[in-house]
Simulated assay, not measured.
Amino acid sequence: MNNIEQIRNDWSIEEIKLLYHEPLLELVYKAATVHRTWHSSSAVQVCTLLSIKTGGCTEDCAYCGQAARYHTNITVKALMDKEEVLSIAARAKASGSSRFCMAAAWREVRDNKDFERVLEMVKGINALGLEVCCTLGMLTETQAERLQAAGLYAYNHNLDSSERYYDEIISTRIYGDRLNTLNNVRKAGISVCCGGIIGLGETHEDRIGMLHTLSNLPQHPESVPINALARVPGTPLQDLTKVDVWDMVRMIAVARILMPKAMVRLSAGRSEMSTTEQAWCFMAGANSIFTSESEELLVTPNPKLDEDRAMFELLGLTPLSNK
């Protein structure tokens, strides 16, 4: 293994492929070693994710229940009021969250009154002492600058999959659009949250390709969410099989080795994982999770707050403070 204190942005596909296909126990050991070099082994960042505008999206992402063209049981909801969002954020902080993430089911940000309201939410949550993150779709450079001026700490915009497989799951935008938004976010001085989803029907080579793109960005994302497909009834991917937990462990471990400074986020899929399975993910280098007082990760199930507290106590984990 390369020097574990070295940050690299020149990983080759072959190097990543060799890592990815290592025997699992050896891979986890290497990832755990890297993790402990760069991070506390027991500190996990607790992030709260809130859907501030739900459903009605014009995109055709095959995995997403919020796409207007699919017939799902998800209720479309308009943009929430600022005061309600701030109240939820305050409760999230009291429950141990250090980052508050707001998601709106938009294809792209538009310069209108809704964006102005989001900017006011960002200001209010920043004043609470929380890291503020948004995921609002595609951004222009000017919009990113306005979010940064309002106090936005991070922006989430996932690659979803490899560039090769991307067209199989989304046709309403191209891979380059995602990379352009990431570039606009970075130029504005906002930290980048960017990862992907496994279980979309992709191959191992596609997973390796996505990790190659992420790890070869000029600057690694500060946060890398690894999601297991949530099979939402009514979407084109509803009948795919559940992601094997060992595939999640493998992806987290490789991401940890390739991007040692990043917060590797164990994201969608936790509701179908046991405490033992989540423990393997933490051992492999995950050091961040999403929580929600509504027990939903946007519009899919997420573990209860009490379940997460019990898991932390059992595993000896503590919420990471941003102070």
Rank of each mutant, 00 (worst) to 15 (best):
M102Q: 03
I125Y: 00
S288K: 02
V34P: 00
Y166P: 03
G199Q: 09
T291Q: 07
K304Y: 14
N9D: 12
R178T: 10
T276Y: 15
A286Y: 07
E26L: 05
R256I: 08
L86S: 09
L217E: 15
S97F: 00
E15Y: 12
C281N: 11
A78C: 04
R107D: 03
R164K: 14
R110G: 03
N184P: 05
H212M: 08
E120I: 00
A230G: 02
L315E: 10
I7C: 13
L298F: 05
V34Y: 01
E293R: 07
S97C: 14
D111Y: 07
V109G: 01
S215M: 13
S161K: 09
K30A: 12
L298P: 04
V76Y: 14
S40Y: 09
E163P: 04
A154F: 07
W246G: 01
T142R: 05
R250S: 06
I169Y: 02
L182D: 08
I52L: 01
R309M: 11
T203G: 08
P221Q: 11
N9F: 13
N183W: 15
T58Y: 01
G55V: 08
L50V: 13
R250I: 11
L314C: 10
G137I: 04
V76G: 11
N322V: 13
H204N: 15
L119F: 00
G201D: 14
L136Q: 05
R107P: 03
A279P: 01
N180G: 05
M311C: 10
S97I: 04
Y20M: 08
T33M: 12
G195P: 09
C57L: 08
A188S: 07
I16C: 04
H157V: 05
I16K: 06
N322E: 08
R146C: 02
V185M: 10
I208K: 03
A188F: 13
S321R: 14
G124N: 04
F100V: 00
D177K: 13
H204G: 09
D206N: 08
R173F: 08
S87C: 08
V44W: 03
L24N: 06
T37P: 02
I257S: 10
R164W: 13
P260L: 10
Y155L: 09
R173W: 09
Q6L: 15
M138N: 05
M121P: 00
H212T: 15
V299Q: 05
S87P: 01
M248T: 11
T75C: 11
S191D: 12
E5R: 15
V44N: 00
E168A: 10
M80I: 01
A62C: 09
V109I: 09
T275K: 11
H35M: 11
V249Q: 09
F115K: 00
L130Q: 01
R8P: 12
Q278Y: 14
L200W: 06
T275I: 10
A268G: 13
Y155S: 04
V44S: 02
A150N: 04
S41T: 01
H35I: 04
